[in-house]
Design a protein around this nucleic acid. Structure first.
Length: 488
RNA sequence: GGCGCGGUAGCCAAGUGGUAAGGCGGAGGUCUGCAAAACCUCUAUUCACCGGUUCGAAUCCGGUCCGCGCCUCCA
């Protein structure tokens, strides 16, 4: 068995994965800010880390997976105001909005077969913890208070810039922007913000205010996973400044390196440009789900390595749909041939190949290629293929969170040989959305028509069924297989 | 400008020293009444470019060009 290697942003190398505690993995992934619906870019991140989570579990690790929900933030406040929130009810309105989009997030992720993390701490539940952390940072001399704004003093943390490969001196030289309000140094970042009028606020030793964005991840990860854990993930855009700041805060407070391996997923792009709210080129997941089944979107996303950018194109999604249909088809035919029980067993050699890919920095594209090769083997000569080959194909898909679907139904070709009831046939052809029995009856009619070589009438039935989303395959033995195409 | 990621067929995409996986699309053929599905054959003598190391390089080193991202909120 190959060993798991992970590309670590911190070292820019692939490293052998060694958890701090044998057999256990503690991972943290930056979650959403719940102020809007998720787009494909979010899906990419959470699907990618879902694959990581699933693979670690597959390897037998006991994984604790934490993902925060930011439910307190400038964008939420802005949104609440846009929706008419006033000074008196701003906190409530922010919380309602966060609640709504958090629920939507869970729904969207469930449709993408993203497993639930073990904990979803909310920022608002952790304000007290953040205050405690800030206090520690102040006591240790890493933070200073300026009229109710508390800042982290970057100059006091020599390791600053390590994750993002930035040089503090150069950053400073580049930061010729006006020295922000009352910071000692433009790179210093807010730990605690004095509340302005009409903003949600919490009490603190420095007065009413709210926490800065970065501190929540430090407080939550520490609380749920301890001061040092194994994996920390997120989008590439979080490397700087978010994760850089998070490291600075956590390490300054605890003198421990918060996470050993930092992983960052690449972006979804559209026409080679980053998909992002500010560029207004996002594709909302809910809109996308109306065009492509969620499992096709998942399949599409897993078709490339998590660190590479994925360019969103209709052709790409369509190609993913076709490719997945091939695997579905293989699975369906094997199911018909051997039954579900026979497919439980997976060929260990094939699974080892899959493991080689997944252990190489979670190469999901490589793993899917193995599945495709196995399907090809079956299609090439089903009679020479063992059930465990297709079992491995389905097993690999399962590990990646892709459940294969059997959409095939075989309708026997015998049936009564009597005369064709023409009026009943016309009646059935007129049915708007035929049910199971009507479909079967139409197929039977078509079989009879073909036996009497009335092909144009048989074709009318085929066209009618096609319009209802049903495709027909005539088998050599006279039976008919129908496939529900739907909108794959 | 600094830092980072990348450039592999018409498109997408694996592959980090041993002679180019896989998918989609396309062409032709088999099967079929016609289809569909599937199968067979073909679709990169070559991995942005130029040097170098090596018996051997898409893979390593140096340089060049191009694309993207981060450096401000952002998955």
């Amino acid at each position: 068995m190959s060993e798991l290697k992970i590309h670590n942003t911190l070292t820019r190398c692939k490293e052998v994965f060694i958890p701090r505690e044998e057999g256990k993995v503690r991972m943290y992934v930056c979650g959403i800010t719940a102020y809007d619906f998720c787009h494909l870019g979010h899906a990419r991140c959470y699907v990618a880390f879902d694959a990581v989570y699933r693979w670690l579990k597959h390897l037998g690790y006991q994984v604790t997976y934490v993902q925060n929900i930011t439910d307190l933030d400038d964008k939420l406040i802005k949104r609440a105001r846009e929706e008419g929130a006033g000074e008196s009810d701003i906190k409530e309105r922010v919380s309602e909005i966060a609640e709504k989009f958090t629920a939507a997030y869970f729904e969207d992720m469930a449709r993408l077969s993203v497993l639930r993390a073990d904990f979803y701490p909310r920022a608002t539940e952790y304000v007290a913890g953040m205050v405690r952390l800030i206090k520690i940072l102040k006591e240790k001399g890493f933070a200073y208070n300026r009229a109710g704004n508390v800042y982290f003093e970057v100059a006091r943390f020599p390791e600053y810039g390590r994750l993002s490969g930035r040089d503090v001196g150069e950053l400073l030289a580049g930061a010729r922007v006006k020295i922000g309000e009352d910071k000692k140094n433009p790179l210093d970042f807010a730990l605690w913000k004095r509340s302005a009028a009409g903003e949600p606020s919490w009490p603190s030793p420095w007065g009413e205010g709210r926490p800065g964005w970065h501190i929540e991840c430090s407080a939550m990860s520490m609380d749920r996973l301890g001061p040092d854990f194994d994996l920390h993930g997120g989008g590439q855009d979080l490397i700087f400044p978010h994760h850089e700041n998070e490291i600075a805060q956590s390490e300054a407070a605890t003198s421990r390196r918060p996470a050993r391996y930092w992983l960052h997923n690449g972006f979804v792009t559209i026409k080679q440009e980053k998909m992002s709210k500010s560029l207004q080129n996002v594709s909302n997941l809910r809109d996308l789900f109306r065009v492509y089944p969620p499992r096709v979107i998942r399949f599409f996303l897993l078709g490339r390595h998590y660190r590479s950018p994925v360019d969103y194109t209709e052709e790409g999604l369509a190609a993913a749909g076709e490719a997945l249909a091939r695997l579905d088809n293989c699975y369906s035919l094997a199911l018909e041939r051997w039954g579900a029980a026979a497919l439980e067993e997976a060929d260990p050699r094939a699974m080892e190949e899959c493991a080689r890919a997944m252990n190489d920095d979670f190469n999901t594209a490589g793993a899917l290629a193995v599945a495709h090769r196995l399907a090809g083997e079956f299609f090439n000569s089903p009679e020479k293929t063992e059930p465990k080959t297709v079992g491995a194909m389905a097993g690999i898909c399962g590990i990646l969170g892709i459940e294969l679907e059997n959409r095939l139904v075989r309708i026997a070709g015998r049936g009564g040989g009597g005369a064709i009831d023409e009026s009943e046939l016309e009646r059935l052809l007129a049915v708007k959305s035929p049910g199971e029995e009507e479909i079967a009856a139409l197929v039977k009619f078509r079989q009879a028509l073909r036996r009497t070589r009335r092909f144009s009438d048989a074709d009318r039935i085929r066209e009618r069924l096609a319009a209802a989303g049903i495709e027909i395959r005539d088998n050599p033995d006279g039976s008919t297989t129908i496939e529900r195409i739907g909108n794959r």
